[in-house]
Amino acid sequence: DESNKPILLPNESQSFERSVQLLDQIPSYDTHKIAVLYVGEGQSNSELAILSNEHGSYRYTEFLTGLGRLIELKDCQPDKVYLGGLDVCGEDGQFTYCWHDDIMQAVFHIATLMPTKDVDKHRCDKKRHLGNDFVSIVYNDSGEDFKLGTIKGQFNFVHVIVTPLDYECNLVSLQCRKDMEGLVDTSVAKIVSDRNLPFVARQMALHANMASQVHHSRSNPTDIYPSKWIARLRHIKRLRQRICEEAAYSNPSLPLVHPPSHSKAPAQTPAEPTPGYEVGQRKRLISSVEDFTE
């Protein structure tokens, strides 16, 4: 099969070098950035008060330690540790928490760990991170309901609301924008112990962030949302095809390698009803078989 044979790379090609550099910018793992907010007593309706908090309760602090690993920003190499735009020179604080497994990295933009500057009256330095995160974990210690939209931002799609209760338990629920209701189930609340709260809140936030990324990708319907490693695979396959075309153009005697095509017509299947918005969006999480067989 010609399409699977190794090909020689061009010795000097600026377009090839640019493509390789672009490939280096696509990590081999999925990345997520999640905002974390603490809401104190009497702050449920005040964005400024929430963003001005420099610490929270003892249970909130224990919750943070379970979310991930504490890292010092100045020691991080952005090409190895995903920071979601946090500055490593102290502009966004000294520490944050991050978490990773074999296929993804997540960083938490924690408002109480970011510096509260006197010259920044409206807390814009914090909002440029927190307001651009799709998902926020809100530790609501106010005793009042927290409403979506209290923290203004164009991309605040989903809130994971943590409400501490007695007996070391917590109520965990989801809020989302109306255009996200087909992807996020907000109907079920959970009672979770303090011990298990970081794991549950983190998983709910990661799932909500993946759904938000799919939702946000609708602005470019021709580019369905893939995982990062599938995006790398697609980029490599496009690069291979372009090299083959350039080689055939410079030397017409060489065969032009095309991806294999299936001449056999697909079997006719009964027509199915058109899937609704929710089903269609969830299918976009699934990769096409052509990603692996071309």
Rank of each mutant, 00 (worst) to 15 (best):
E17M: 09
S3D: 15
L233D: 15
G276W: 05
Q268I: 11
L86N: 15
E2I: 09
N132E: 13
S13P: 08
D141W: 00
V279L: 09
G93W: 07
G276C: 12
S261K: 11
D185M: 03
E47R: 01
Y167F: 11
L206I: 08
D194A: 00
E245T: 11
C89K: 10
V88R: 06
L48I: 12
Q241K: 14
N196H: 06
D133I: 07
G153N: 09
S15D: 15
E278P: 12
A211E: 01
I110Y: 02
I34D: 00
L183T: 04
C98H: 15
I71C: 12
V20H: 07
S46F: 02
K178N: 09
I224Y: 06
V20F: 09
E144M: 08
L37N: 02
K264R: 10
R284C: 12
F292V: 13
V107Q: 13
D79E: 10
C98W: 15
A208Y: 03
K33M: 11
I103G: 04
L174P: 00
K33W: 04
I34H: 00
L67K: 00
V279G: 15
N220R: 06
E17K: 13
Q268V: 12
D1W: 14
D102N: 06
L37P: 00
Y97R: 08
E245F: 09
M210R: 01
V257P: 12
T116Y: 07
K5A: 15
L113T: 03
G56Y: 02
E278K: 06
A248T: 11
S263G: 12
H129F: 13
P255N: 10
Q175F: 02
L48Q: 13
P266G: 11
Q105C: 11
V279I: 09
V162T: 01
Y29S: 06
G153W: 09
S217I: 06
E54C: 05
C76N: 11
K147G: 05
T163H: 03
W229H: 12
I71K: 08
I50K: 02
K126M: 05
R284Y: 09
E181Q: 07
T112P: 03
K264M: 09
L9E: 15
E245P: 12
S173F: 06
C76P: 11
K190H: 06
A265L: 08
R195S: 08
Y60E: 00
E12K: 06
A189Y: 10
T150Q: 03
F199L: 06
D133Y: 07
C244E: 13
G56Q: 02
E91K: 15
P78V: 15
A208C: 12
G153I: 03
T150I: 08
N170Q: 00
Q203K: 01
E72N: 09
D179K: 03
K264V: 12
N170W: 00
C244Y: 09
V289D: 13
R202Y: 02
V279P: 14
Y29H: 06
I110L: 02
L165G: 02
D133P: 09
I151L: 11
M114N: 07
L183D: 05
Q77N: 15
M104P: 02
P266A: 08
A205S: 04
E41P: 11
P115Q: 05
N196C: 06
V162L: 05
D179T: 04
L254G: 15
R195K: 13
V162Q: 01
R59Q: 00
S136L: 03
D141S: 01
G90V: 08
D133M: 09
N11G: 11
V289L: 13
R282F: 09
G56C: 02
F108D: 01
S261T: 10
F292P: 13
E246K: 07
V107L: 11
S212H: 02
S250I: 08
V214C: 07
R234G: 09
N132P: 04
